[in-house]
Design a protein around this nucleic acid. Structure first.
Lengths: 336, 336
DNA sequence: ATGAAAGCGCTAACAA
DNA sequence: TTGTTAGCGCTTTCAT
């Protein structure tokens, strides 16, 4: 004789019966509707607690045609800037009752899956793109999209999407001007081939031009990795041994540059000052003490989330584009 | 006059009509059932393509009472070891038709949410715990759980859970023995207060004992962070200036130790050799070149996934515990 | 303020 | 091999 299988999870029917009300009322209480009498609300709440009831997202999604979930596509879990972005997103999405699900473009690609399809199958109400997926992946997305942190995708492939990004060009200026202020003149730039890298490069170039100095850029076709930063710095030091300062396109490349400097018996900041970008945890490690531009990713996330909520409210409003102002965090790699 | 709102997504009804078959047949095709005639299968597939049909997970979950999704709880997105773990998990879960959703314990806690509840509301079929949540969070989870990477949670709070972890004790031995082989005798250990840290410490202690050397351990109550690693190393170098080698509980602490060494005018490996643990990207950066124990997180993930699938097949089998063997990756911090 | 009833899009017996 | 028919657990008019 089998014991009655008691582990079936309770439904609103059970809660309703237990509380002596209709299941519609339970549904109202669940969603915090105001027009419910206090005694009933209590009864329902007690029943919920007593039974250990948990609403079924699947059923609710099916009935309401909305999941109150937003999908976030990030580029690469290895690159920790997404953590701050995510924290910012959640700081406003959580209180609004939205659930956030994350996917990593690299990992999805490795599995041969289309992450956008995944989010759509899951009935996400909206998407946050914090990566630059191939344009064909983002064609005709039938739900609101906000592009966060990266700027390239916006205008071309997704004309209707909102964009919240860091002002990378300004960041590039900040880094360069800082070195200028420190008295450097032979300032070189290690770049990369990403969209943000291009903006940062432009900022560097403008400041150099305005100061009447020659811009020296290497690595515009490289990945923005530690290994490539190392290679670019090697090349730079070989071809222009007189540089006294380097602006790197991100912290990873800056750390690569450190290695190249050491190989030549040089060190930062004594021989060559180095500035990174992202203000990642890396930059804060004492051993590296890397001066870095902080894009304020958390704020970018929060602003993107606000934009998303506004878009959900008003689908027809014209696309918005916001730029978040970066700041410079000075550490040992440029000052003693 | 509004144009007929055409953006309602197609359902199996639409597909069935378009293909001239019943919706059950569509469902069968969708799930790749073998007993479907080739012409019908083609007709259905064509209709799917033509209409741009995408199955609704919500409906499918509701009807079948399973989501074919597994929830993965990781500790902290900042700590990149989870990326490899995740890649390993997906390498076997993807082909099996499972979807993986990730949550970060820190982030969830910051939102005041219970991540396990989140997974249950979402109807995950099973859970992978790659973190050490408070025991009360993991009581009475009504779906299969496999603990991955961390070992502590298993026996006590989750007697029925499967466990796949790295053999941290063996890893501690590997690191210590490597230094011994290099001729070091004054080998100290920088530890931390996590479960894995305790195992690594034990490995270190055993090898020291067997070699007839004195074990010197600092920091057993610290967080395993860069900052704490720095602090612990400072303390160590002040109290035992004669050490010639350090085994750190993880790469982060090792990098902290680098800073403490430099502050005293010492460097690795010339004055003090340093070994880390995790073989994180950090360890591979040329500027750090940190010898590190590789726990093979990817393999841990893959094995955890296999265990999960087996568990889903056979819920009543006795719990399994597997230990993955780590290996040592030698870099510049211990050898020239 | 509360209840009744009709689905949401799919799966899974069961029939045919 | 294919079609019919009940639901799955919830939301949402519409009554009352």
């Amino acid at each position: 004789m089998t014991t009655g299988d008691n582990r079936a999870r309770p439904t609103i029917y059970d809660v309703a019966r237990h509380a002596g009300v209709s299941k519609s009322l339970v549904s109202l209480v669940l969603r915090g509707e105001p027009h419910v009498s206090e005694p009933r609300r209590r009864a329902v709440q007690d029943a919920i607690d007593a039974l250990g009831y948990r609403p079924s997202r699947a059923a609710s999604a099916l009935a309401s045609q909305r999941t109150r979930s937003v999908g976030v596509l990030i580029d690469d879990f290895h690159n920790p800037w997404f953590v701050e972005l995510l924290a910012g997103l959640r700081s406003v999405l959580d209180p609004a009752g939205y659930t956030v699900t994350v996917a990593d473009l690299q990992l999805e690609a490795a599995s041969g899956r289309n992450p956008v399809d995944g989010f759509l199958a899951q009935h996400a109400d909206a998407l946050v793109l914090a990566a630059e997926p191939a344009p064909e992946l983002v064609r005709d997305i039938p739900i609101p999209v906000v592009v966060a942190g990266v700027r390239e995708l916006g205008p071309s492939a997704l004309p209707r999407a909102d964009v919240v990004a860091g002002d990378d060009e300004h960041g590039g200026e900040l880094a360069t001007r800082h070195l200028l202020d420190l008295g450097h003149h032979a300032i070189a730039h290690i770049s990369g081939r990403s969209g943000p890298a291009a903006h940062r490069r432009r900022g560097y170039e403008r400041v150099m031009r305005e100061a009447g100095l020659e811009a020296v850029v290497v690595g515009s076709t490289l990945e923005t990795t530690e290994a490539e930063g190392y290679a670019a710095a090697q090349e730079l030091l070989a071809s222009a041994p007189s540089v006294t300062a380097i602006v790197a396109s991100n912290d990873l490349m800056a750390v690569g540059a450190f290695a190249a400097l050491r190989e030549r018996g040089l060190s930062a900041p004594a021989d060559v000052a180095v500035v990174g970008y992202d203000n990642s945890p890396l930059a804060g490690y004492r051993y590296l003490a890397l001066t870095s531009v902080d894009p304020h990713s958390r704020e970018i996330g929060a602003e993107a989330a606000r934009t998303l909520l506004a878009r959900l409210e008003n689908p027809e409003a014209p696309p918005r584009r916001a730029l978040i102002d970066p700041t410079l965090v000075v550490r040992g790699s440029t000052a003693e």
